[in-house]
């Protein structure tokens, strides 16, 4: 049988946009996910500094958020992003791999809420960005509202 984590693993490799950004699934636990993508010159948003465009980071955080929703123990279907707010703390150091870690901290019958943090390289305590998001959700046991 295909487990949720088998399916979530495919987020990074099968979804065309994730593949284009070379995303990788690094960790999957109930309601949690860590994903990353390598530094890539094609993704530079500021030619003066070589820093990756915020949009590429938001694609990683959105995907990671979706993966953590998918890994929620009560998840019974596919989710779409309803809203995502990203705060940018500092530029991701050029050349460093970018990581995102998401936690789906609450799910109702219809909505799941996530918190995501992003960092570069091994500097997990130096946040590049944080995000909060809401995803559509299908609850296994609570049924439809």
């Amino acid at each position: 049988m295909t487990s949720p984590s088998d399916i979530a693993q495919q987020f990074a490799t099968f979804l065309p946009h994730c593949k284009a950004l070379n995303m990788r699934m690094d960790m999957l636990e109930p309601s949690q996910a860590i994903m990353s993508m390598p530094y890539d010159k094609r993704l530079i948003g500021d030619p003066e500094t070589g820093v990756i465009h915020g949009g590429a980071v938001s694609a990683l955080m959105d995907t990671c958020g979706g993966a953590s929703v998918f890994m929620h123990p009560e998840n019974a279907g596919a989710s779409v992003t309803l809203d995502l707010r990203i705060d940018y703390m500092r530029p991701a150091k050029p050349g460093e791999r970018i990581y995102a870690e998401s936690y789906c901290f609450h799910a109702t019958r219809t909505v799941a809420f996530v918190r995501v943090t992003a960092w570069a390289g091994d500097k997990k305590d130096e946040m590049v960005a944080t995000a909060t998001g809401a995803f559509s959700f299908k609850h296994k046991t609570k049924g439809r509202a």
Partner: peptide, 27 residues
């Protein structure tokens, strides 16, 4: 282009790509 797709089953453009597009338009 096909690489913008996030959900091949629907198919739908990746939400992250949409957000990136909007941010680019703003900048």
């Amino acid at each position: 282009t096909d690489m913008l797709i996030g959900n091949p089953a629907l198919p739908a453009i990746h939400g992250g790509a949409t957000a990136a597009f909007l941010e680019t338009a703003a900048i």
